[in-house]
Amino acid sequence: MDVQQYISSGIIEAYVLGIASGEEVRELELLSAQHPEIAAAIEEQQRLMEDFASSYHLPPPEGLKESIWDKLEQEATGKAVPFPAAPAAQEQPVTTLPQAETKTRRLYTPLAAAVALLVISLVFNVMSWQRTRSSEHELAAIKSQQENILAGNRQLQQQMEQNRKHMAMMMDPAMKPVHLAGVGDHVTNNAMLMWDTRTKDVYLSLKDLPKPPAGKQYQLWAIVDGKPVDAGVYDMNTGEMMQKMKVIPAAQMFAITLEKEGGSPTPTLTEMYVAGKV
């Protein structure tokens, strides 16, 4: 670059007048370190401005030095900057500050600062602790919510799978549906039975029957050649819509009676709820 051209561009004058932009200042300081001519030109202009400023020289008002001194003394003690003892300090009016006052100030200001810091720190700690605790609570709540959702999801999936099986069963031409209609006092009740003609498995749905009293259970009977054959008891608590009963190779009729829990060897005919022909 052309150093002379740079020097005569007015950038140095702008710099010493305080109007150079931040970018110009950085450039100038960089170039000044590389080119002694630039550094010399800057110094020349700075001296000019120093002399110009000196021409405005005005004696400061009486007592200002003392009040500035007090301020610096506070600065020294407040910031805990060690104020070096000057050997000839005695001659300075500034050092006539009472020793005790200075010591007290020296002691109290850092002490006050320390206490303030401690209080700030404590408040901050309590706040962070509370924030952490509430975060933990929120996290626990979210976790339990997530578990509930997952459990619900699993239940839904199981139910879907069951429904799919039942649907497949209904659509299967080999499955023989048997409608069991209400008898006697129970005409309004119905039950549905599916009989697999290949495996002879019997599936029963009792959704429509009233909940049996405690200690009682519904029992399915296959009527084979006029005789009742136990086809198993129905568990109302499984939640499964179609329950697999016993294998019945042949039957002309099916009937359901209410029996004691676990089932009876022979049906209680007065407690017959539904029955249907195959």
Binding site: S8, S9, G10, I11, I12, E13, A14, V16, L17, I19, Q45, L48, M49
Partner: peptide, 8 residues
């Protein structure tokens, strides 16, 4: 900047 230079 040119004016500043002339002024100084």
């Amino acid at each position: 900047k040119t004016r500043a230079r002339a002024a100084l």
